[in-house]
Design a protein around this nucleic acid. Sequence first.
DNA 1: GAAGTTCGTTGCGCATAGTGCAACAATGCT
DNA 2: AGCATTGTTGCACTATGCGCAACGAACTTC
Lengths: 253, 253
Amino acid sequence: MRNELQAADRVLQVLASFDSAARELSVTRIADTLGVHKSTASRLATTLVRRGFLKRSKRALRLGPEVNRIGLLALGNRDLTALAAEAMQWLCSQTGETVHLAVLEGREALNIGQVDGPAIIGIGNWIGRRTKLHCAANGKVLLAFCGEHLIASPLEAYTARTVTSVKALRAELAQIRRLGWALNTGELEDGLNAVAVPVFDASGHCRAALSVSGPSFRMDPNTYSRLAGQCQQAARLIGFRLGVDKPTAQEPR
Amino acid sequence: MRNELQAADRVLQVLASFDSAARELSVTRIADTLGVHKSTASRLATTLVRRGFLKRSKRALRLGPEVNRIGLLALGNRDLTALAAEAMQWLCSQTGETVHLAVLEGREALNIGQVDGPAIIGIGNWIGRRTKLHCAANGKVLLAFCGEHLIASPLEAYTARTVTSVKALRAELAQIRRLGWALNTGELEDGLNAVAVPVFDASGHCRAALSVSGPSFRMDPNTYSRLAGQCQQAARLIGFRLGVDKPTAQEPR
DNA sequence: GAAGTTCGTTGCGCATAGTGCAACAATGCT
DNA sequence: AGCATTGTTGCACTATGCGCAACGAACTTC
C-alpha cells in the first residue's frame, strides 16, 4: 500500500532541489528535475508560492519567507542569539542598559541572550531563566504578538504592581499591539523597569522579544519612548538577519 | 481552474503549522489543524518524514534536517558567518593562523568570513573575494564535496604549482574525499599554504568550506595533519550550529 | 522595432491517486 | 493487566492531479 502521496512528495522534491549551486530555479528546470510536464511544475510552483515557501523573482523562483521562518524554528535558540548578537551589542551601546532576547517556550518567556550594560547596578545573568508572560515586558510582547490564547489563568502576583486581571491584561495587550512596544514597571520585581518590542521573522510571525531593562531610577517615564524606538531599530536589524526583506523606500533611519 | 494542488498544499500546511508554541505536533493534532481524517494526516506526515522535512520523536513530529538545510540556504551568508563565528575564533586561537569560511557561488569560492591570526605576516582581508575553485584549498573542498560537475575548463594556472590537468584534479579530489581535507601549497600564490575541510549541514550537504592559511615557512608539511584535525573539530562545531544532530557515542574528543 | 523562440499559464477530459472508513496495531495511562 | 487513545494500513470510491494543446508573456535575434 502506498504511503507516499505523489503530489505532496513532489512539492517537497521542489524544495529539496534548491542548493548552494541552485538558489534560483525556473519552472522548466523544476519540470526537468522532477521528470514532470511543465504545466505540472507550474502548478507545483504556484502552490509553493501561495504558501510562502517560494517567491518569484522575475521568471525565477527562490526560497521564500516561510522557509526562513521554519528554518529558524528548526535551529536552536543559540543560533537565534548568534544572529541577534550584533544588534543586541548595538542596542546596549546606545542605551547603556541591559539587553535581553527572549523566546516563547510553552507559556513562559525563556531568556536566551543577554548583553550587560556598563553600570554596576544592572541585571544579573538571566540566560536560561524562564518568566511568566504577564509580568515581564518581554512576556507581554510575546502574549500580544504570538496570541492571547497563551494567557495562563490565574495570573500570579509578584509585586503589588503585577497585573492580575485577565481583562486588564487583555486591554494592555491591545495597547501594546497599537504602540508596538511593552512596558514593565516593577511588576516582576520592585524597582525593575523594562521596555520590550517584538522581533518578526520573514513570515511576519513574532519570533522573539527584545528588551532593555534597568532600575527605575535610571529608566523613568521620560526615557520609555526613546528606549522603545531604539529597541525597534535593533529588532528591525535582527529581523533582517532572520530573512525579512528590506523595504528600501520605507526604511527609517 | 484550480492552480492549487490540494495534497501538495496540505503538506505545506503541515510545515506551516509549526511555530514557537508548537515545535512538536502529533498526527492527531495535524488532522485537527488541517480538518482532514487522521489517516490522511498520517500519510502526509509519512511523506514529510521520508523527505527529511519532519522527524519522529517518540510519537511526536518535529521539523527535520531538510528544513534546517533549506532554512540556512534561505538565509544570507552573513547569517552563516554569524553562526560560524565562535568556532572560527576557536580555530584561530588553536592554530594561530588566519581562518576563512567560503561558500560556493556559481563556480567559484566566495569568502564570507575571516578571522585573523596574531602574526604580522598573515593574510589580507579576503571577505567578498572570489577565487577559482581548482587553485584554493577551500575551492577544492567545494569541488570534492559539492560535485565535480562544477569543474570549469580550462583550468587557469596562477603559479607554476597550479593543477591545470582535469584528470589530475579529479584524482586529487578523490583523495580529498578520502582524507576529508584539502591542501593548497602555493597553487594560488607562491608561498601561500592552506588546509581546508568541508562544513556539512543537517542534511549532510556540504554548505561551506573552512580553512586555515598562512605562509609556507610557518605552515609546512609537519603541520598539515594537525591543522586538518583542528579544522575538522571546528567544522563539526559549525555543523552543530547548522542543526546537525550530535552523535553522542561517536563524538570524538 | 519586428519576428521568432522559449518559457509559463490555463482549460479540459481522463485515469489514477488521495481520501475516509473500518479494522487492527502500537503506545500510554491507570 | 485492562482500557483508552493514537497511529497505521487495506480497500473501494470519487475527486483531484495529470498531460495535452493552445495561448499569452517574456526574451532573444536580426
